[in-house]
């Protein structure tokens, strides 16, 4: 008996955002990355289209990230001492995007200055042809100072500036407005907060196709179901036509997975947990693949092996 698979048609569509600009568009990237644009739930390719698969960004730090798991430092090797080299390595590891995470201080504890931020941005831009994202250290004053400088330095490159939060989005958005960048808006796990921040950012005049939202997520086993549900609802609302939720979603499974004990700790845990490196990579991979299924458009990952595995996962899902 033939089975008819019901097709669900949605009135809404996620806005397609373009990150990066090639020389023809006023930047220096070797290619641009488009995200979003889907008019269906993730991978329901029978219902609608998903013009862009979820994209993978590799997170690099602006100096050796001493708080990162030794497994990660080991995996990347020496490049972690030089953001430019790291960016290049990330590109070689198969990233679609490179995320530069600025820290509050430089080596030796001196605060990171605007000039440092500019130099770091420039170095990364020169090292890789991928579109980039630059996130501030997450402290209001520092973010404002550093990201404005970054935005100027990268004028024309259509980078993503992060992180806008409700208490601190105006300056970053203004910098994005002035220099033609995108912003990443992060809210605590809540549909309405996410929507409200999107409204506030759009109210400042930033076009919707230059806003990425980050509804915050959690690591596997640490409340991921909660983040999953929020993302799913955001996506459902978007597909139902709620304009202010129709933005591509960025999530940070790398950060979330690697701060959990299961990934972070190799000693003093039950033997039944098994091989540490294997376990850690699995943890990141599973966190990421879960979020892909709930509608993530950009995944920020840390381990090169995870990148490979997640890439395979996406490719298989995208296969018709």
């Amino acid at each position: 008996m033939p089975v008819e698979i019901p097709v669900e048609q949605w009135p809404g569509r996620v806005i397609e955002a373009t990150i990066g600009a090639t020389p023809a568009e006023g930047g220096t990237r070797s290619r641009v990355v488009k995200v979003g644009g889907e008019n269906t739930l993730p991978f329901m390719l029978t219902d609608g289209e998903m013009p862009n698969p979820p994209r993978i960004a590799i997170e690099i730090a602006d100096r050796r990230p001493t708080d990162w798991s030794p497994l990660l430092l080991e995996a990347w090797g020496d490049v972690v001492d030089d953001p430019a080299k790291w960016a290049k390595a990330a590109e070689e590891a198969g990233a679609d995007l490179v995320l530069l995470q600025l820290s509050l201080t430089r080596d030796g504890g001196k605060p990171t200055t605007a000039a440092d931020a500019k130099a770091l941005t420039r170095a990364v831009l020169q090292a890789t042809g991928l579109p980039i994202l630059v996130f501030g250290p997450g402290q209001v004053d520092a973010d404002n100072e550093l990201l404005v400088a970054v935005a100027e330095e990268a004028a024309g490159e259509r980078i993503v500036l992060g992180i806008c939060e409700e208490k601190n989005y105006r300056t970053i958005v203004a910098a994005a407005l002035a220099n033609g960048h995108l912003v990443n808006g992060r809210t605590a796990m809540d549909v309405n907060l996410a929507k409200q921040l999107n409204i506030l950012i759009a109210d400042m005049g930033l076009p919707l196709d230059r806003i990425i939202m980050d509804p915050t997520t959690a690591g596997l086993g640490y409340g991921i179901e909660y983040g999953y549900s929020v993302m799913e609802r955001l996506r459902l609302a978007a597909l139902q036509g709620d304009k202010m939720t129709q933005l591509p979603i960025l999530v940070t499974p790398g950060f979330e997975a690697w701060r959990q004990k299961e990934a972070k700790v190799g000693q003093g845990v039950p033997a039944s947990w098994g091989d540490w490196p294997q376990r850690a990579i699995l943890w990141e991979t599973l966190t990421a693949s879960n979020l892909i299924l709930s509608g993530a458009d950009i995944l920020v990952l840390r381990h090169p092996e995870t990148v490979k595995r997640v890439r395979t996962f996406i490719e298989r899902l995208m296969a018709k």
Binding site: T171, V173, M204
Partner: peptide, 8 residues
Amino acid sequence: GIQLVDGR
């Protein structure tokens, strides 16, 4: 301009 826009 950034300060005007962000309200500072």
